[in-house]
């Protein structure tokens, strides 16, 4: 079952001089098992939109249906929050318990599970983010490195066993290695468990390789939508929206200007190498 966002508009502080419309008539369907990238400039409405997906915000107009259930219904909101796991930006700022195990167990405990089940989920969730529960469980979350703290925080959401995992800029402020590790783990979760992942980012580089589909937000509206390869062919349009295309895609676009016939729908360096070699070889033979 999908998450359906139907004609959703949202206004912050309506009726005051500070009223600001963050979303304007958004229509979006997120299918189960999908890896979706949500891209937009600062202030495009990304963060507002994802808070609608688990009922933290309810639309001023329109509706959000999670597996057919309207998020405006109070009674089912808890169930929706369990189903749609939301990882905020800098999630390590929400850690509060004395130990990693207790912090990761916060969600499951709120679900009313027994201690045995909580422990099982803590181990499972920590393993998902590549941390050993025996080693990290008893440590204080405040003694960990930035990257480790972030993974513990993500584990805290995974421990709820969500069907949908929404992450707001999960790699912000991490070094390249930390970034690659987190993105690798997400790709793995998606592939291995069939988890539906919604990745919010303003970096094309990050999401291009991973996602099945990209949705571009601009000033509270869906400005463009499609598979990354297709979308990046519309580079000029994206630039107008204040977004670039991955460097390697840009490189191949310029390469093809000098070498007509070379493919431009390239997303990774490996693909580029292959395409350039293929192109040069073909020319050599001609």
């Amino acid at each position: 079952m999908p998450i359906r966002v139907v004609d959703v508009s949202y206004t912050y502080q309506p009726g005051t001089p500070f009223a600001a419309t963050a979303l304007k008539g958004i229509n979006l369907t997120i299918n189960e098992g999908e890896f979706l990238g949500l891209i937009g400039h600062t202030g495009s409405g990304k963060s507002t939109l994802i808070q609608h997906l688990n009922g933290l915000l309810v639309p001023t107009e329109g509706q959000v249906l999670v597996d057919g259930v309207d998020t405006r219904v109070r009674a089912t909101r808890r169930a929706i929050r369990q189903k749609v796991g939301l990882v905020f930006q800098y999630p390590e700022h929400q850690l509060f318990e004395e130990t990693v195990a207790k912090d990761v167990g916060f969600g499951p405990r709120n679900l009313g599970l027994t201690e045995d089940e909580v422990e099982e989920r803590v181990e499972e969730a920590l393993a998902m983010v590549g941390l050993d529960a025996a080693k990290y469980g008893p440590r204080s979350p405040f003694d960990l490195s930035g990257g480790e703290m972030r993974r513990v925080a993500i584990a805290g959401v995974l421990a709820m066993r969500p069907q949908y995992l929404v992450l707001d800029e999960p790699t912000a402020g991490l070094d390249p290695r930390g970034r690659d590790e987190i993105l690798g783990e997400l790709a793995d979760l998606h592939k291995r468990l069939g988890l539906t992942v919604i990745l919010v980012s303003h970096s094309m580089e990050d999401v291009a390789r991973l996602v099945d589909r990209l949705v571009v937000l601009h000033r509270g509206r869906v400005a463009a939508e499609g598979k990354p390869r297709e979308l990046f062919q519309r580079a000029e349009e994206l630039k107008r929206l204040g977004l670039g295309i991955p460097q390697i895609t840009e490189f191949m676009r310029r390469f093809s200007e000098l070498h007509p016939g070379a493919r431009t729908d390239i997303l990774t360096v490996e693909e580029a190498v292959e395409e350039i070699l293929r192109h040069l070889r073909r020319r050599g033979h001609a």
Partner: peptide, 11 residues
């Protein structure tokens, strides 16, 4: 933000 994040974890 923190309230929302903890609510997302069932707080």
């Amino acid at each position: 933000k923190i309230m929302k994040a903890q609510m997302a974890r069932g707080a």
